[in-house]
């Protein structure tokens, strides 16, 4: 077989769709022809690159939106183009944000984008970008949820239902940078950044989301001392979550989970007053 004849079959070869006879004809040629063998490698590389799955999980609110469609909005939803459907979701979500924002005099932070539609949280925004620049990834993540810088006191007023602390200094010498109030759809959230000689640490507090909604996360057993939580790892970074009945406390750091992280978790996740259901189950 000539090189041209062989190369015409390389696609079918990598796809496993070549007849056995033709494969037997081609293989000796490939064994002796560097150029064709290199082309085969190249095609395999392309196939591998295309095969890499996306890391993005299915948005937790997708099924709910489908159910809404099944419950009666189907005709209307299907009649519109996707772009129009997206805009159509905004009013109720924006109304919820406005309710919070007006009460706190934060109308200026409103952004007209789709981030306001979900009451759950898409951590893939943070996780996907972590290896590039963790601090930038964190900033991008909080910006997506309409971050507005605030004092720790205002953050507590903004999110009175959350149980959290953002002390000026964390165990281990991390100094507080910025504190942000966030909008996870209609729910309030809070985030803060910390720094220790250039080492970044970020915290996010939000209402607990059902674990079934934490699509991008992998659950791990007890990773922060004896506290309940789970984590996801991206390279050296760990996003560790610690939940009590009112709040999910998320800490992004490169700290050792057994020695350095537990005191920090304790600092940002104070015990609930008795009667609130307890926390930090063993």
């Amino acid at each position: 077989m000539t090189c041209d004849e062989v190369r015409r079959q390389l696609g079918a070869l990598i796809d496993g769709e070549l007849s056995p006879d033709l494969r037997l004809d081609i293989e000796p040629h490939l064994a002796g022809c560097e150029a064709c063998a290199a082309e085969l490698d190249e095609l395999r590389g392309l196939a591998s690159g295309l095969a890499l799955p996306s890391v993005a999980g299915v948005p937790s609110e997708l099924w709910a939106s489908i159910e809404r469609g099944l419950d009666g909005e189907r005709t209307e939803l299907l009649r519109r183009s996707p772009g129009v459907r997206r805009m159509a979701r905004l009013p109720w979500a924006l109304a919820a944000v406005v309710t919070l924002a007006v009460g706190l005099g934060l109308v200026g932070l409103l952004r007209n984008d789709s981030s306001a539609r979900a009451s759950s949280i898409d951590f893939t925004l943070l996780l996907d970008a972590l290896p590039h620049d963790a601090k930038q990834a964190f900033t991008k993540f909080v910006s997506h949820y309409d971050a507005k810088e605030a004092s720790p006191e205002d953050a507590k007023l903004f999110a009175p239902d959350l149980n959290f602390e953002v002390p000026e200094e964390l165990p281990g010498g991390f100094r507080r940078g910025s504190v942000y109030v966030l909008h996870f759809g209609e729910l309030a959230g809070v985030a803060a950044t910390y720094d220790r000689d250039g080492e970044f640490l970020g915290v996010v507090f939000h209402r607990p989301v059902h674990t079934g909604h934490c699509k991008p996360h992998k659950d791990y057993p007890c990773v922060a001392g004896h506290q309940e939580g789970h984590k996801v790892s991206v390279g050296q970074w760990r996003l560790v979550h610690l939940m009590d009945p009112t709040t999910c406390h998320c800490v992004l750091s490169r700290l050792n989970e057994q020695t350095e992280l537990p005191p920090i978790m304790s600092a940002v996740a104070p015990p609930l007053p008795s009667g609130d259901g307890g926390r930090h189950r063993d």
């Binding site: 890499l52 996306s54 890391v55 893939t124 290896p131 996801v232 790892s233 991206v234 390279g235």
Partner: peptide, 8 residues
Amino acid sequence: LETRQPGD
């Protein structure tokens, strides 16, 4: 779509 795989 960020293209990086966690842990890569």
